[in-house]
């Protein structure tokens, strides 16, 4: 069973994302985090188990302490057999200040499958889920 990991420093955004996911499928397992470093820790812990469950990480970019870019860079250091368990979806506000080069760079990492612009809507989420699910 695939689970979801929502990483966002905003409490409201976590609530909204989690709630939208629940509405699409009541049985989804969803874990939320406000600090990306805790997610790295979780991945490290899970990798010790024999066959960890795959997960989809919904990742905000602008966060204090560890932002989304730094998270992806750290994530890329994991061995391939761990990385293949995870799919990263960027969920962020896009603005003219975002360096297009940065977005392009993060999109080039293997684990990053898609970018969704906030605010989240039901349509955006359903489109995303229909794209991801067959792959798992």
């Amino acid at each position: 069973m695939v689970s979801f990991i929502v990483v966002d420093d905003s409490e409201l955004d976590r609530f909204v994302t989690q709630n939208f996911l629940k509405r699409s499928d009541e049985s989804l397992i969803i874990n939320t985090f406000h600090d990306a470093r805790d997610v790295l820790e979780l991945i490290r812990e899970n990798s010790k188990q024999p066959d960890p469950n795959p997960a989809i990480i919904l990742l905000d970019l602008q966060m204090p302490f560890m932002n989304g870019f730094e998270f992806v860079e750290e994530f890329e250091k994991f061995p391939a057999e761990i990385k293949e368990k995870y799919t990263i979806i960027i969920l962020t506000i896009l603005s003219p200040d975002n360096n297009p080069g940065d977005i392009f760079r993060i999109y080039n990492f293997g684990a990053v499958k898609s970018i969704i612009e906030k605010p989240l809507t039901k349509e955006k989420l359903l489109t995303l889920l229909s794209h991801i699910k067959p792959a798992n």
Binding site: L12, D13, F15, V16, T17, N19, F20, L120
Partner: peptide, 9 residues
């Protein structure tokens, strides 16, 4: 955008 997302929800 958080508030907008909440309104959508």
């Amino acid at each position: 955008s958080g508030i907008l997302g909440a309104i959508n929800l």
